[in-house]
Design a protein around this nucleic acid. Structure first.
Length: 241
RNA sequence: CGGAUGGUGCA
């Protein structure tokens, strides 16, 4: 397994792939995480067919990869815009008896948002609860950011309220989306207000938070604020963009 | 015992 991991890291994906397939044929159970990483690497190289071959090959010798493996493949297909393949995979997953988890849903939500079908994404979010899969902070933040990209500030803030009502605390990514939204439209007051809320809720601003806020002050021509923030950033050893 | 999959900024 260690050797195979090295092969992957060294960029010899195809070799690693062959060896895993061989192991399967010889009756050894391949390491699940390794297979998942392999799937990820194959997809990044756009080798969809190799990926599919690997999985079906393993399946044919009786090894069924984990849900994480399928989620990885699913995510890659969605990102590549290969929706017909992605749907088919989803279908297979269900047929294999997997119960879609919060990761699977977040991938679907993200895909819908990217296609600007944010309302549909929101519907899916609500549907999750009926399917006994509680949306987490990532699902909410994804939809929220979908609205941000469409310039729908009120709806984005609504999602924020909704997640709070459902006992899901916004995290640094959630706040970053909102801060950048207000910064872009020049509302540094609201951006800064959220900045305060973020810290009050125990979230530590990261380099993205700072960049988003600085960007807002820059657009407003407020160099002193910018400077202050950048210095603060350096003190915390965060890299400015 | 670790190890795998989802969301955010500027350019």
């Amino acid at each position: 397994v260690f050797l195979l991991r090295l092969l992957c890291k060294a960029g010899c994906i195809d070799d690693a792939c062959r060896h895993v397939a061989d192991m399967g044929r010889l009756g050894y159970e391949p390491d699940i995480s390794l297979v998942t990483e392999l799937v990820n690497d194959l997809c990044k190289a756009s080798k969809w067919k190799s990926c599919h071959k690997l999985l079906t090959g393993l399946y044919n010798v009786g090894f069924i990869p984990s849900l994480a493996t399928f989620n990885t493949f699913f995510s890659c297909l969605c990102r590549a815009g290969l929706m017909q393949q992605a749907c088919k995979l989803l279908d297979d997953m269900v047929k294999l008896g997997f119960t879609l988890d919060v990761y699977t849903y977040s991938i679907m939500i993200h895909t819908l948002c990217k296609a600007e079908k944010v309302d549909e994404a929101y519907k899916l979010l609500k549907a999750m609860r009926n399917r006994k899969c509680e949306p987490d902070v990532v699902c909410y933040s994804t939809v929220l950011h979908g609205y941000v990209r469409l310039g729908k500030q009120e709806l984005a803030m609504k999602i924020m309220d909704e997640m709070r009502r459902n006992n899901c605390s916004p995290d640094v990514v959630t706040y970053n989306s909102l801060i950048s939204m207000f910064s872009k439209v020049g509302d540094t007051t609201k951006a800064y207000e959220l900045w305060g809320q973020m810290r009050a809720n125990g979230c530590v601003p990261d380099h993205i938070s700072y960049t988003a806020l600085v960007d807002g002050f820059c657009r407003q021509n407020k160099p002193k604020e910018c400077l202050r923030l950048v210095l603060e950033m350096l003190k915390k050893r965060l890299k400015p963009g």
